[in-house]
Design a binder for these strands. Structure first.
Lengths: 206, 206
DNA sequence: GCTAAATTTGAACGAACGTTCGATTCTGAA
DNA sequence: TTCAGAATCGAACGTTCGTTCAAATTTAGC
């Protein structure tokens, strides 16, 4: 899953690795997502990540170059998954309305199933810099491009207006982590339909 | 402006204060908003705030109990202004459509005129705790209540659905700080009308 | 100009941070 | 069983952080 990363880390495929290697790496990333989602990137400590990942503090640095690379791996993997699964879903959708539903469903479902990673992606968008930021930005922009195209097929307006419509949709979808409650909002299909209704027909009375 | 704060600070109105006092306090808050908006609350350093506020590091603690109180003052003041100005605008609006425009206009205009404070409010919503968090939450919830009532007058649906429609609107409006560019988006009335159109009529073609 | 209070300062504290590194333990192939 | 290398660990380094406090400076009223 993390193998497809652009070669920012030393690739070094010559060395032999233990079978546990990938599992351990994923476990650390899971712990990092949890801690960063809760405390923010600056507020999160590598020591806390290590404790949750059942590894020593310095053990983290055997798998990752530094704290930045933890955030990078989380974000790059999440956005890649998001854009990949969206493209798959869009192929199976025919009408523009179905495509919009695919966009909303894909985004919201990813959120429900990967809350920590989602929060880290939305809330720590500006926490990276340099190559890390640039690479994540590229995937993020590709994701936006796909969504904007879908919105464009529905929206009657200029490109400027289509952009704003797509950005409005993103805003609504990314804001969910501020109010969504697993206990209170158990019927996610209902929420998805509601999002679709609001953006398809607006909130005005019939 | 900060005088109306709930008495978390020692009120101490007995002591005499210099005329510069309020100006100095506002200057520090402005600097804090700038730094926190850029670096995040955890990433922002009191030293940086002090430097930008043209005051010594320890001077900050003459005006504020600690770093938390800086964030508290910014957020409480911003939300109070937001809810107060919204109520004024709603009085002058007659139709539900005009009220929705007032909501969007009020929110977006505040953002354009107070970007740093806006970002600090949206991005650092969970950075406070205890009494600070509780007091800000109260004003924030009152603001939401007013907006939800406006949306409810337009939206044909259950309370659950009205909530989600209002939360969608909030999401779109709060997301603007991620894409708004003062140079590129100079016509803010156009943006406001676009927001209104999307939420009033949806994004579907006529 | 004197004085007491308001304001500002500089230096210092302990704590927590990210990162490094040599030593140690574990593991899989011979 | 042996052993090279992968994986983990413990301790420490230097830096930056929020906060404190006594001393110095500035201010307003007499």
């Amino acid at each position: 899953m993390v193998a497809g990363l652009p070669k920012i880390k030393a690739s070094a495929p010559t060395t032999r690795r233990h079978p546990k290697y990938e599992k351990r790496m994923a476990s650390i990333l899971k712990a990092a997502s949890r801690v960063i989602a809760r405390d923010g990137f600056e507020g999160a400590s590598v020591r806390d990540v290590a404790a949750r990942g059942k590894i020593g503090l310095s053990g983290i640095y055997y798998y990752f170059k530094g704290k930045d690379e933890l955030l990078y791996a989380i974000q790059y993997h999440a956005f890649s998954t998001l854009v990949s699964s969206l493209k798959d879903r869009l192929k199976e959708a025919s009408s523009p309305e179905e495509k919009l539903r695919a966009v909303i469903d894909n985004h919201f479902t990813f959120f429900v199933n990967n809350m920590d990673e989602f929060i880290v992606c939305v809330h720590e968008m500006e926490s990276l810099s340099g190559k890390y930021y640039k690479n994540v930005l590229a995937v993020r922009q590709e994701y936006f491009r796909v969504v904007r195209r879908t919105v464009g097929e529905l929206f009657q307006g200029s490109q400027y207006e289509t952009d704003l419509a797509a950005l409005s949709l993103f805003g609504s979808l990314n804001w969910v982590y501020m109010w969504y409650d697993r206990e209170k909002n158990r019927d996610i299909d209902k929420i998805i339909s509601q999002f679709l209704r609001v953006f398809l027909n607006g909130i005005a009375k019939a």
